[in-house]
């Protein structure tokens, strides 16, 4: 039941964004369509439902968004520095990153965040290993790789998906 309500809420919010008007006819049609869509698809789209609506998790989600935005801006200045420099200072290679996250959704968020953080791009995810293309390989030691690439994100994601 909680999964159903969660899907309904998400669909309804997307509808309100699409139409961007709060006229009562639009809202009624939107609610009706969201009910049908949520009934058809809640089994395949969500795993936990209202699980995320808990003050502690919401706090960590906001913290995650803040950390992510800062990392995104840093990544862009990093790319700009490398592209503008006439000597093109890069030393690329593919390294293995071991994660301790269990759920698939958490791994997806981790992989996407790693793609958008400075100098890294996820190539593939197999079980608990992420293969990462790193534009400036500092070392091949697993500890250093973990600390440099995904430590911040992984600690917050562990709290959210506990």
């Amino acid at each position: 039941m909680s999964r159903f309500i969660f899907s309904f809420g998400i669909f309804f919010l997307i509808w309100l964004g699409f139409t961007s008007s709060f006229h009562y006819q639009e809202v009624i049609v939107g609610a009706f369509l969201s009910l049908i869509l949520a009934f058809l698809s809640y089994k395949s789209f969500t795993e936990r439902g209202l699980f995320y609506l808990n003050p502690k998790r919401l706090f960590y989600i906001i913290k995650y968004l803040a950390v992510f935005t800062i990392a995104l801006v840093k990544a862009n200045f990093d790319v700009a520095r490398r592209v503008i420099n006439p000597k093109l200072p890069i030393n690329p290679g593919i390294v293995t990153y071991h994660t301790s996250l269990k759920s698939d959704t958490a791994k997806m968020f981790l992989a996407n965040s790693i793609t958008l953080t400075p100098g890294t791009l996820t190539v593939d995810v197999i079980d608990d290993k992420l293969y990462i293309h790193w534009i400036d390989v500092i070392s091949e030691d697993p500890e250093t790789i973990y600390n440099e690439i995904g430590k911040d994100f992984e600690e917050i994601l562990k709290e959210i998906f506990r």
């Binding site: 862009n76 490398r82 592209v83 890069i90 690329p92 791009l121 534009i135």
Partner: peptide, 11 residues
């Protein structure tokens, strides 16, 4: 290709 993707995606 991979370095191009890095620059392309982030920026």
């Amino acid at each position: 290709v991979y370095s191009r993707m890095q620059a392309g995606t982030k920026a």
